[in-house]
Simulated assay, not measured.
Amino acid sequence: MLDIGRDISDSDFILIGLGEEWESCEMTEELQAAYEKLRKQIENRDYFVVTTVMDGWIHKMGFDNKRIVAPCGNWNYMQCKAACCPDIWMKGEGIGEVCPKCGAPLVENTVESKPYVETGYLSQWQIYMSWLQKSLNRKLLLLELGVGFRTPTVIRWPFEKTAYLNLKSRLYRVHEKLFQIPDNLEDRGISVPVNSVEWTLSV
């Protein structure tokens, strides 16, 4: 029987991966409630959040921003379309519509921009890597929520590898359709075929 509350309590470290099921152009009541519940479940614990969600809502939900990394970027930031410089600017800062360095158009700072300016997340990624090293051979709970195959190299495959290497880990993979767990995780992988936002509200 699944007992996520017990697994959270028993873990030394909690690694959360948020994917496409959490992405939204507007903050709905359901999504806000799910974020708030997730935050309350893990507050005062040693956690880290990796998100491929590009809407930026998580940064307004009371999580510790020092424990969040968003390697796919954020719709709320702009970059030079030509990537002439490493600078990024928040929308509404009066920067205008063109790069002040070269005059090229500004576009959203996300992986969908080609080329993608990675300045916004790289320092935080190093913090995440250091945190992950500390979890080695410790009780690690991996909560993979709503992660599909848009960018599987960021969360989905690394979480599988981490769970495989850490014999004290436990991986929850929650997704409405893409919930399958690799055979090599044996009893450490838990597959939950439910929309992850709805599941978060229900547990």
Rank of each mutant, 00 (worst) to 15 (best):
S113F: 03
Q180V: 10
I127H: 10
V111M: 14
Y121N: 07
E118N: 11
N166V: 09
L167Q: 13
R173M: 02
L171H: 10
N184G: 03
F159N: 07
E118L: 04
Y121Q: 06
Y121D: 08
L132T: 00
N137D: 14
Y172H: 06
S169Q: 03
R170G: 01
P182H: 03
Y116G: 02
L106E: 11
S169D: 01
Q180R: 13
F159Q: 06
H175E: 02
F159H: 10
M129C: 11
Y128V: 06
E108S: 10
K177M: 11
E108I: 03
L142M: 12
L185M: 06
G146D: 04
H175V: 05
L141H: 02
N184C: 13
P152V: 05
E160Q: 15
K139V: 09
R173S: 12
K114S: 15
Q180H: 10
L145K: 00
A163H: 05
E118G: 09
N137M: 10
L122G: 01
E144M: 15
R170L: 12
V154P: 09
R173I: 04
T151W: 12
T151E: 09
E118C: 08
V117A: 09
W125F: 13
E118R: 10
L140T: 14
L106V: 10
K134Y: 01
N166T: 08
N184L: 12
V111C: 11
A163E: 06
D183C: 06
K168P: 00
P115T: 05
K139W: 01
G148D: 01
V111D: 03
Q126N: 12
R170S: 05
T119R: 04
S130H: 06
L143D: 10
Y116K: 01
A104C: 08
T162K: 11
I127K: 14
L171N: 07
T151A: 13
K114I: 15
V174F: 00
T119N: 09
W131E: 10
K177E: 14
V174W: 01
S113G: 07
L171C: 06
V154I: 15
P182R: 04
V154T: 15
T119H: 01
T153V: 05
P105D: 15
N137I: 00
T162M: 15
Y172D: 08
P182W: 00
T153S: 13
Q124F: 03
G146A: 07
F179I: 01
L106A: 12
L142A: 05
L140H: 08
E176P: 04
Y128W: 12
L122D: 00
L185Q: 03
K161G: 09
S113C: 09
V174L: 00
G120R: 00
V107A: 10
E176I: 05
L140F: 08
V154E: 07
I181V: 11
P158V: 04
K139C: 05
K168N: 14
L141A: 03
N109T: 02
S135Y: 00
R150S: 15
R150E: 15
M129H: 06
T162A: 15
R170N: 07
L141Y: 00
